[in-house]
C-alpha cells in the first residue's frame, strides 16, 4: 500500500518540530497546510510575501490580493505579516526559514535536486526553488516515488538540470521517508507493505 498525498503530508509534518518556520512549495507541498492541527505553532511562509499563512479562507474571506506562491487563495493567522519579494527572499537566503518543502522530478544520493525543466519537453522555471534549497536550514522533498512511466525519481545521479547541488536532507514519497546519508538513501520509514527489496534501484538504499 502506498500513502495518499494527505498521508504523505502528515509524514512531512512528523519531521518538523513545533514552533518552526516552514516554506511550502507549489504543488504537493501545499497539501501540508491542509493537515495542520488546530492551534499549531508553526509559521508558514510563502515566498510571494507573507509569513503566517492560515487555513483555506471562508467564502467571505476570499481576497484576490491574498494568495500563496501557488496563486491559491489563503487566509492569514494572528501575528502574520506582509512584505516585498526582496525581504521575503532575504528571509530565505538569510537562513531564517527552518524548513522548506518542495516538489521534485529527481533526487539523487548526493542530495541534489532537479525540479525545474526537462530539456526540449517542459520548462516550468525554477521560481524560488534555487533560493530555497540554498537558504532554508533543512530541505524536504515531497514527491511521488516514481514518475507516471514507473521510473524511479530517486536516482544515483540526476540527469535533469539541477535546482541545487547536494542540498536535500530528506525525501517523503508515497512509498516511504528517506534521509540522504553518505551517498545512500537511508530508510527512515516505509509505507505499510512496502519492502526495501521491491524498491527500484534498491541498491541505493540502506
Amino acid at each position: 500500500m502506498t500513502w495518499t498525498k494527505h498521508e504523505m503530508a502528515q509524514e512531512v509534518l512528523n519531521l518538523i518540530p513545533e514552533n518552526s518556520s516552514i516554506n511550502l512549495g507549489i504543488g504537493q507541498p501545499t497539501i501540508v497546510s491542509e493537515v495542520l492541527p488546530e492551534n499549531h505553532t508553526y509559521m508558514i511562509h510563502s515566498e510571494n510575501g507573507v509569513l503566517g499563512v492560515g487555513q483555506r479562507p471562508c467564502e467571505s474571506e476570499v481576497s484576490p490580493t491574498l494568495i500563496n506562491a501557488g496563486k491559491e487563495t489563503i487566509s492569514t493567522i494572528k501575528g502574520a505579516s506582509f512584505f516585498d519579494s526582496s525581504l521575503s527572499f532575504g528571509m530565505i537566503r538569510g537562513g531564517h526559514i527552518d524548513f522548506c518543502i518542495l516538489g521534485g522530478m529527481q533526487v539523487d544520493t548526493d542530495g541534489s535536486l532537479a525540479n525545474w525543466m526537462i530539456p526540449g519537453k517542459k520548462v516550468t522555471g525554477m521560481g524560488g526553488a534555487m533560493d530555497l534549497v540554498n537558504g532554508a536550514k533543512e530541505v524536504i522533498i515531497m514527491m511521488g516515488h516514481e514518475s507516471k512511466d514507473g521510473v524511479s525519481k530517486l536516482v544515483k545521479t540526476c540527469d535533469l538540470p539541477l535546482t541545487g547541488h547536494s542540498v536535500v536532507n530528506k525525501v517523503v514519497t508515497n512509498k516511504g521517508v528517506f534521509k540522504i546519508d553518505n551517498g545512500k538513501f537511508e530508510i527512515i520509514k516505509l509505507a505499510p507493505g512496502i519492502k526495501k527489496e521491491e524498491l527500484k534501484l534498491f541498491e541505493l538504499y540502506k
Partner: peptide, 29 residues
C-alpha cells in the same frame, strides 16, 4: 530564467546603487 530571490535582489540592487552581489543561489546549476 532567473531564480526568484536573485531576480528580486537584482532589481532591488539596481534601485539602491549596488552594481553586483555574490549569492549561493544557482551555484552548480
Amino acid at each position: 530564467l532567473v531564480p526568484q530571490g536573485t531576480f528580486s535582489e537584482r532589481i532591488r540592487a539596481a534601485g539602491l546603487g549596488i552594481r553586483a552581489f555574490y549569492t549561493p543561489t544557482g551555484h552548480g546549476t
